[in-house]
Amino acid sequence: MTLLEARRIEKTFGRTHALRGVSVAIESGEVVAITGPSGSGKSTLLHCLSGIMCPEAGEVHYDGRRIDTLDEAARTRLRRDAFGIVFQFGRLVPELTAVENVALPLLFNGDGREKSATVARDWLERMDALDVADARPGELSGGQLQRVAMARALVTGPKVVFADEPTGALDSLAGEKVLGLLLEAARVNGSTVVLVTHDNQVAAHADREIVVRDGAAAGVVA
């Protein structure tokens, strides 16, 4: 079943054509890598697929519903309920401890402080980061930051996990460890994973690769 689909989407930033009519379809439960050289538009594709941005032309569908025509509030709701997102540098709130960062999405959903913290600790344990639960982001290594960020993305049990260069700031061994934890957790959750990466070894963790070149899907290779 196709869970997430982009149909001939286009997006420009000023004079740059970031996307020129990309079409991709992502099945439920699969791990897809979106690869391409830097500046190929792969991050923009991820932003459009995840409803962070809206394309200027074309359509984006999620779970049988068109999402690029939804207003900001509805897309925010969708991102919160159905998606989890991980970025390259973790981007944790610097003033909060690791466990508070992970609990944040639950708190925003109105769960109580204690309950959120318990669930957050559970996720930190699954991400092998329980030992840094009470540390602040400034005290963490790149790999630890990324594991906390992944716990934050997974804590709400999202249907789709988007990861934009999740291992970009890590060396290959640390990256492999972090990626392994993410994919394992996603598999247990039954989440679909969309990985944006320029690293072939990261792409090799996916079931399938979508190559983006100059804002277009150059070949959807199974």
């Binding site: 072939n200 070894q201 792409a203 090799a204 690769e209 070949g219 290779v221 199974a222």
Partner: peptide
């Protein structure tokens, strides 16, 4: 060739 290489890497 890329697809074949990546398949092997997978």
């Amino acid at each position: 060739q890329r697809a074949a290489h990546l398949e092997r890497m997978r």
